[in-house]
């Protein structure tokens, strides 16, 4: 089954490339909020690629890879949101800001 190995390797390289872009984004982008876009989204696609590669190259990994892919999509936005909210509440400023609709930190945000 050569085509399966070829596809698996292609998926693996695709995943590694996207993981690399995610790390590159972490280094290039200026602040927490923009970096979360890179770490969260890009590396999700990267991990999907690696999971797909694993499912194609190894026997009997498919159900686990599928479950992991779904859990990743469910959980990754929650983690990004938690980090962003924590940063905002502890007063981390945006390095680059073209608009800010959010009221400044006061007693109102503490109760939520």
């Amino acid at each position: 089954m050569a085509w399966r190995e070829l596809l698996g390797l292609a998926a693996l390289y695709f995943g590694v490339a996207f993981s690399f872009i995610g790390v590159l984004g972490m280094m290039r982008l200026p602040d927490v909020y923009t970096r979360l876009h890179a770490s969260g989204k890009v590396s999700t696609l990267g991990l999907w690629g690696i999971l797909l590669g694993a499912a194609l190259l190894l026997e009997g990994v498919l159900p686990r890879a599928l479950a992991l892919a779904v859990f990743l999509v469910l959980v990754q936005p929650i983690a990004s949101h938690a980090i962003a909210a924590a940063a905002r509440r502890s007063g981390v400023p945006m390095a680059l800001s073209f608009r800010d609709d959010m009221p400044p930190l006061d007693s109102k945000t503490e109760q939520s």
Binding site: F18, L24, G25, T44, L45, L96, F98, D100
Partner: peptide, 23 residues
């Protein structure tokens, strides 16, 4: 999620880092 990954990847790989962030 696929679209957004490509979107962020495109911005990160651009030498000029095109973005206008805000809340």
């Amino acid at each position: 999620i696929t679209r957004s990954s490509f979107d962020v990847a495109r911005r990160v790989l651009d030498p000029k880092l095109p973005m206008q962030p805000g809340i």
